[in-house]
Structure formats: structure tokens, C-alpha cells
């Protein structure tokens, strides 16, 4: 793998941006790169990647452990836990992290993992839905997606999903906010570029929920959307809004082939 090579290169003292842009193309990123697609992992500092790679150092594994505990915890009026219906997550959840958002016929629209978890809680367990960004919902989402860790993202666009996908794509390319920028301005046009102290990545979703060093905790993809909206001084949408689920659908399909990294570590 490219890791040892990278460390040698930076130690020799190349500027960070020069190293990423000039050498990244020649570097072997293994499964973290598929053609032109590159995970945020390939833009991260070696120290950050090392934290992600080490289960004992990666702070997000606290949430994996808590999710595992919740999986077996009975809650709600039906006296059920997740495990009552789904038994072992490593088997029953293996394909979830790679394929969501999926179309929910009963709602006539796509839903993501967080929403499926809460649907199970309210409709099958008779339990209260977990709040977005709560420790519980983050832990369960991370635990479920972690069952697909290393597997390639594979969102299949059915006819039913297409109109929602198209809305997500439109959102992605639409300029917004007082700074008048679209997601694509930063993450397509200038991916790999140096924006002040940040290296812009392709904004891939395959590591979410992610442990962000800046947040000092894990956060959902929709939290990231809100942050990226606000930094261009645009009104964000609500976590779990149709707009963000459509955007997640577009973005996750765009990541097809990259490995699920949940829980990743990012700057």
C-alpha cells in the first residue's frame, strides 16, 4: 500500500498541497481509490489516517460498542430489541451500509439508515424515535454501517428512485448562499485544491457518520451538509429533510465502488 511511501515523501519535506496534488495521482491508494473517485481518506493527513486505521485509537469505536449494546437492548411497548427481529447484525445488516438510501414504498420516497432505524423503533418496537445527532441514533447508525466496512458502496437506482436522485443532483449543482457556491464548485471543480488550511476532497459520503477531529465527536452526513451550507452563508435544511435525503442518494450513488469506511476519522 501507499502508506509507507507517503510517510517517506512527507518526511523529505514536500509541501502538503504539492504532495497531494502532484503525487496522489501516482500513488496506490488501494481500494480507497476507484478510477477518478477518491475517498476523503486519500486526502487526509497520515496521522489522521493512522487514527482511523487503528480500532483502539479510533475514538468512534466507542460509538460502535455502544451501538452493539443497544442492538440487544429491549425498548418500547412491544418488548423487543433490534436483535429480536434481526438476530446477528453481522449477517442481517451486511448489505445495509452499501445500499442505502433505498426506496420506501409505504412512504413513496427514499429513506436513509437513520430513518429506517427510527421506523423500526416506532412501528415495530413501540418505542420513541431517537433524536437526530443523539448519542443513540449516531451509535446505532455507526454500528449498522460498520457491518459493511470495507465493502464497496453499491446504490442501485431503480425507476422509483430516479426522480429523487435527480433532485439530489440538482441540489448538488445549485449555487446557494451569499457566497453563491454549489457543492460541485468546491468538491468537483476544486477537489484536491488548497482552501486556506483545508485540502478540498471530493466530499465523498462513504465514511459517515464520521469522527471529526474539529467536532471532537462523531457526526452524521446531514450535519456535514448543514455545515457546508452554512459556510457559504446559505440556509441549511433540517436533518432528515427530503432535500438532504435526496442529496444523500445522489452523493452515495456517486460514491459507488468506494469502500464503506464507517466510522472514518476526518479533520
Amino acid at each position: 500500500m501507499g502508506r509507507k511511501f507517503w510517510i517517506t515523501v512527507t518526511a523529505v519535506g514536500f509541501g502538503l498541497s504539492a504532495a497531494t496534488s502532484a503525487l496522489a495521482d501516482e500513488m496506490d491508494w488501494g481500494s480507497y481509490q476507484v478510477g477518478e473517485k477518491r475517498s476523503g481518506y486519500t486526502f487526509a493527513k497520515p496521522e489522521t489516517r493512522a487514527i482511523q486505521d487503528d480500532e483502539f485509537e479510533n475514538p468512534a469505536f466507542l460509538w460502535v460498542d455502544y451501538g452493539e449494546e443497544l442492538w440487544d437492548t429491549v425498548d418500547g411497548t412491544e418488548g423487543k430489541a433490534c436483535a429480536s427481529c434481526h438476530e446477528s447484525a453481522s449477517q442481517s445488516m451486511a448489505a445495509v451500509g452499501t445500499s442505502y438510501p433505498v426506496f420506501a414504498p409505504e412512504l413513496g420516497k427514499p429513506i436513509n439508515v437513520e430513518q429506517r432505524i427510527n421506523q423500526c423503533r416506532t412501528e415495530r418496537m413501540g418505542a420513541e424515535p431517537w433524536k437526530w445527532e443523539s448519542r443513540e441514533l449516531l451509535a446505532m447508525t455507526i454500528y449498522v454501517k460498520n457491518q459493511s466496512q470495507g465493502e464497496p458502496v453499491n446504490v442501485v437506482l431503480s425507476d422509483e428512485l430516479m426522480p429523487f436522485y435527480e433532485k439530489g443532483e440538482e441540489f448538488y449543482n445549485q449555487r446557494r448562499g451569499q457566497l453563491d457556491m454549489a457543492c460541485s464548485n468546491c468538491h468537483v471543480d476544486f477537489a484536491g485544491g488548497q482552501l486556506r488550511a483545508n485540502i478540498l476532497t471530493q466530499g465523498q459520503p462513504n465514511g459517515f457518520p464520521t469522527y471529526r477531529l474539529k467536532w471532537q465527536k462523531v457526526g452524521s452526513l446531514h450535519r456535514r451538509f448543514r455545515g457546508c451550507n452554512k459556510q457559504v452563508r446559505a440556509k441549511p435544511y433540517a436533518n432528515g429533510s427530503d432535500e438532504y435525503v435526496n442529496l444523500e442518494l445522489f452523493l452515495t450513488h456517486r460514491a459507488n465502488g468506494l469502500p464503506v469506511e464507517t466510522p472514518s476519522v476526518r479533520n
Binding site: 449555487r175 446557494r176 448562499g177 451569499q178 457556491m181 471543480d189 476544486f190 452563508r233 446559505a234 440556509k235
Partner: peptide, 16 residues
Amino acid sequence: IMPSYYRNDGYHRVLK
């Protein structure tokens, strides 16, 4: 990608 520094209209969903 460069913002217009002296324009106040024609934008989408500007924060209040």
C-alpha cells in the same frame, strides 16, 4: 467560484 463582493441580490437561500 469567486464570490461577488458587491452584489446583494440574485442569490438562493441566503441565511437571514
